[in-house]
Nucleic acid binder design. Sequence first.
RNA 1: GGUCAUAUAGCUCAGCGGUAGAGCACUACGUUGACAUCGUAGGGGUCACAGGUUCGAUCCCUGUUGUGACCACCA
Length: 765
Amino acid sequence: MENSNIISPRYDPKLFEKQIYEKSLNTFLPTKNDNSSNRYFSILMPPPNVTGSLHLGHALTYTLQDILIRYHRQRGIDTFWQPGLDHAGIATQLVVEKWLEKQGIKASALNYNEFISKVWEWKDSSATNIVTQQKALGCSAPWKYSRFTMDEGFSKSVVDAFVQLYKDGLIYKAKRLVNWDTKLETAISDLEIKNIEEQGTLWYINYKISNSNEFITVATTRPETMFGDVALAVNKDDERFKQFIGKFATIPCTDRKIPIITDEHADMSKGSGCVKITPAHDFNDFEVGKRHGLSTISILDKHGHMLNNEMVPEFLRGLYLKKARKILLEKLTEDGLLVKNDIITHSVPYGDRSGTVTEPMITEQWFLDAPALAGKAIEAVESGQVKFYPDKWKNTFFDWMRNIQPWCISRQIKWGHRIPAWYTPSGEIIVEKTEEDAIQKAKNLNIVPDDLRRETDVLDTWFSSGLWSFATMSEDFIKRYFPTTTLVTGFDIIFFWVSRMMMLSLYFMKDIPFKDVYIHALVRDDKGQKMSKSKGNVIDPMELMEEFGADALRYTLTFLSVPGRDIKFGKDNVKISRNFITKIWNAGRFLQTQGVKFNIPLDQLDFNGKINQWILSKLIAFKNGVDNDIKEYRFDYIAHRMQVFLRDQFCDFFIEAIKIQNEENTKNIAGFMYKEFLKISNPVIPFVTQHLVELLSGDTDLKPTDFSAILINDADVKDVDDLVTWIHEVRGIKHAEGSTSEQYINAKNNTDSLNQDLKTLFVLA
RNA sequence: GGUCAUAUAGCUCAGCGGUAGAGCACUACGUUGACAUCGUAGGGGUCACAGGUUCGAUCCCUGUUGUGACCACCA
């Protein structure tokens, strides 16, 4: 028992991190502070996808959030950190399909219910894994309030939100051109498209002018879509084509004739100057078609195969579009209609998740009228009600919000919230919260649910995430913690999540979802490359914590969190952090062996004396600095300050001074200083600091002492600062090449400028 | 094509209208009461380039170049 309070000779986080975490679990729960005002501090933890395990980016975001949470909780502020998980529709479905494949199960062989139960099975193990990792990192969240975007209550909120938006005319169903992923066979939103620059071919193809022997040359990168052409467009000022305007041209391999029209979309400098108009398979063409009242002709099915109908020549029917293209080009060459081809660089849209080229496709989808909701969100940022840190990100936000398009919220996948819509035999749509309501509304007609009409149909994951800011909380918590104080997230999520939460929160709650948005960096590898599994440069946070401890990882990420710059992360950084923590550890060990008391409060210590005034002033500066850094989200500064105070000021000077003075009051001041340092640093490195505070003093309260009433004698502080400078100068002479020992002794004896009280500290030079 | 960043020591990065800073790496010395996962000292920078504002610019302004990201384009 009596040995249990001795700090072990070696810093080994494995010996205490887990125990410290487990015994603190209760303190993570929100506690109403009786004497407090209405002050609270709340954060929505961005729910990680249940796709497996966490990476360093997660470690970063959770570390920063946990620092904020611990900092405020430590100060007695009513604190809430909403934990949870995201079902991540497409991403999870893909992961589960792969997982099943590994077990020799074909996802397509399972029926809907079988597949969904497999996903739940996966979700459960993934969730356990993720939460274990979050706990290892030290996330001090009240886990019993954890939510899942597909849990019963949340799902109900999603349905309610959908129904209300529908009834208010903000959600509608429409047949429109959307981005279609031919591999996943679902619509996806603009944001899920990644444009990749690559080399392609631009083919110049002759269309024959009707009742003439002339041809008009059309340039296209996608010849196979020509069967969906409804017109050819040229610029009205283009002399080359003037004689063709108003005439008709015949689509090669068919006898279908289409008009040659003029439209601003036709750019004289691009291609041949004449562009084919294919409204069913091109976004620009769709607009042209609308302007000219043209029809739309689809020629692809949902798998990306040429349709089996009379619009498509027989020899291409049913072929996958790339194969169809190849055969078509052969045929065109044969017919002498292929004029030439150019190799060009153009960007091609790829589905973010599937990695295949997406196709613009006309389908019936559900849309959310985002333009109608964007205005209030924009205002909230303009007025400063919602602030971005760093401020520059608001420009990114504005750019997107001011040009926002209707949001396609339906997906043709299995895993997700099913759309609460039913159809009467005549095709009338009924949107209600439950099937019973819908049946009642349909007045005994046989209704069909939305997802049976088209196998499956669910909501975009981000639609449910968009409700996260309020649908997660009970009414009581809404009163206490909404709007939340700070959202911590990455810039890549501003469009997906931040802006949508703002729109939906302002709509449903008539209030902003959060006041501050702190945008953190992207974690890259030590060469600045984005970490990815395919590059093999992924660093597993669990391995780092295993080797160096969670505190070292947290400290590293904090230190590297410079605003506006990506983090180049190398393992060495963690080692350096671990070394710093070892330094902290050893300082505590030394003080303990000196019989220093750690429990004497501020008012029972005698701070008279220059050195004591000096170290007290440095501690206060440290604490005030941290307070300010937290307000400004300068996590990097906090980490830096910790080093300056502990190493440069406390260890290098004050501890050395007590070795010389060896006086009890000063020693106990050292104990006080050290403990305060631990408490102030606790939000960043919670494990080691809490462990040491408990070991040295038995205290469980980590609230730093209030110094607001302390007055410091600035003259004393200056004297010691001068002494420190003098010591460095003298040491410099001692080590300087060519200097004699005589010079050194002279310099050392030249202490006239020093105050008498400090002369005992000469030896430090 | 548009927008936003960014350029400081060998590396990773702070910083400030008035002698240029840290960590790592490097060099020398050091195990004199915690700490070699350490200490002490040292070398090392025309603060990308060119103009402008200013008594004075690494810092503010303009331009150039390099780098990165985002948006648009996808004939």
